[in-house]
Design a protein around this nucleic acid. Structure first.
Lengths: 121, 121
DNA sequence: GATTAACCTCTACAAATGTAGAATAATTAT
DNA sequence: ATAATTATTCTACATTTGTAGAGGTTAATC
């Protein structure tokens, strides 16, 4: 089961805050803020999909994500890799290197990272 | 306007084939193949969204994509970058390098690419 | 103790999506 | 020609998504 667009957006808020009460969630939205009930609906659906849970705190709930952003992203990314790059990460990497306009400095930085990574293999 | 999941899937077929008649499109699907009318509906919607057009060939149509896979991907990817990596390509790159399990060889290969890219700057 | 604020559940409803039958037209094979 | 195949359009319908009102509960405030 996957998150829909607006659920994902709410998830991003939750990841940023790590945990939050209803009020905090709504605050995080830019104007025009969504109705409370809208957020409540999304949260409920996300609970059904097992992406979110909460801790009862007195009268209200403190919501928190059940999946780490990193893991969620990785899953999404792998789907993309499969569809667009024939499941080949290196094919993607080559595309990425050419098409993203990283600055010279960023590229140098990246090279260092790769070197470090190579050493761990 | 964006493609939905199953529209995107059909788009992938079209990109692979470059252009195709209804029949060819359906052939490309694994069993159980979708009904012709299903594909027809998707194609129509994709035309409305300006992702697909066709050339009339006698009685039937030869469909073709109006957007290149590369461009479509880039647009999608940029959205992801924004949401997950704070719009920072290099932040993504670092994540990618660590989390994707590229082989030593692939990493070396990638390093070479980056070097080449650096030279163009 | 009545009023207000926060928040939860239920219900609703329009738009988008996934999927396809019915009807129709044209095309080809028998 | 007649039947069988293929494609197209229209219509349909269930599900998912985006968004929120109404109504009820609890907690804090005046």
């Amino acid at each position: 089961m996957n998150l829909s667009k607006s659920e994902e957006q709410l998830m991003q808020v939750l990841w940023r805050k790590e945990k939050a009460f209803m009020k905090n969630l709504i605050e995080a939205y830019p104007d025009p803020k969504p109705a409370q009930t809208t957020i409540a609906t999304l949260l409920k659906r996300m609970q059904d999909k097992n992406f979110v849970d909460y801790k009862q705190h007195g009268r209200s709930r403190e919501y928190f994500p059940l999946i780490e952003k990193k893991d969620y992203f990785t899953k999404q990314f792998n789907g993309i890799l499969k569809n667009f790059f024939n499941d080949s990460a290196s094919q993607f990497a080559s595309f990425f290197t050419k098409e993203t306009n990283l600055s010279k400095e960023e590229l140098e930085e990246l090279k260092k990272l790769i070197d470090k990574e190579i050493k761990t293999k």
